[in-house]
């Protein structure tokens, strides 16, 4: 078992990648919490508690679920929306991975090259990455751990992420729905949402339809 605990930061000027510290990714049916391998079931509840206990819980949907490049992702996008509405959580997109010019608008988007700006600006304390290519997600997760105090989670469609504080693997539509169900269950058991009230921003091609209000 690992001795390197993946905690919310700020950790160091340049923290190590968790894999080089000996942390191993979960096998199918498993997840990891802080670098410790756990049964997937356990992670749903842990994640749901983290989300409900956060002041600014946020989902960062990536290009793989923002863009409708096949039908499965359209269904996933719907499930993500349902999860966000259930808590409620903020949704801030990572539409692509390019270094943006002249600057990114940290209030309404996140960029893997400067993820900390978005975390700082919105005071995000718990976040979930969904639909981001693993390489880019790992860069962003590690940089968030380096310089922010945000607790990071990953709903990875492939093998998972050691650089997140909590990670699922093989995350398909059903797993997103199970996380929503876990949130519902805790709420039914009396766990209260600690999130600050906010208004989810909305945009169209002319700009804000609804401006973000904290």
């Amino acid at each position: 078992m690992s001795h390197y605990e993946v905690k919310a930061g700020p950790e160091a000027f340049l923290p190590p990648a968790a894999a080089t510290m000996g942390n191993i990714l979960p096998d199918p049916g498993e997840a990891h919490i802080g670098g410790k391998i756990v049964p997937e079931e356990e992670a749903y509840e842990h994640a749901a508690r983290k989300i409900l206990g956060a002041k600014v819980p946020t989902i960062f949907p990536g290009p793989l679920v923002l863009w409708k490049w096949n039908d499965h992702v359209a269904a996933k996008a719907k499930a993500i929306r349902e999860l966000a509405n259930e808590v409620p959580m903020r949704l801030i997109p990572m539409a692509d991975y390019r270094p943006k010019y002249p600057k990114i608008d940290a209030a309404v988007e996140i960029n893997p090259n400067h993820p900390n700006l978005t975390i700082w600006h919105n005071k995000i304390d718990v976040c979930i990455f969904i639909g981001v290519h693993c390489h880019q997600a790992n860069l962003a997760l590690k940089m968030i751990r380096a310089s922010t105090n945000c607790y990071t989670m990953a709903m990875c469609a492939m093998a998972g992420h050691e650089d997140a504080c909590l990670s699922f693997r093989d995350a398909d539509l059903e797993k997103i729905q199970r996380l929503t169900a876990a949130v519902k269950k805790l709420k039914a058991e009396g766990v209260e949402v600690q999130a600050n009230s906010f208004t989810q921003f909305q945009m169209d091609r002319s700009g804000f339809v609804v401006e973000p209000v904290n």
Partner: peptide, 28 residues
């Protein structure tokens, strides 16, 4: 996706990115 996609982004100019991107890339 994404369609606006460069492999690999020219993570060189400091006004676009934090240099830790480059370091993290190598670590990855």
């Amino acid at each position: 996706a994404p369609y606006r996609m460069m492999r690999d982004p020219f993570v060189m100019k400091s006004n676009y990115i934090n240099y830790s991107t480059h370091a993290s890339w190598q670590q990855e």
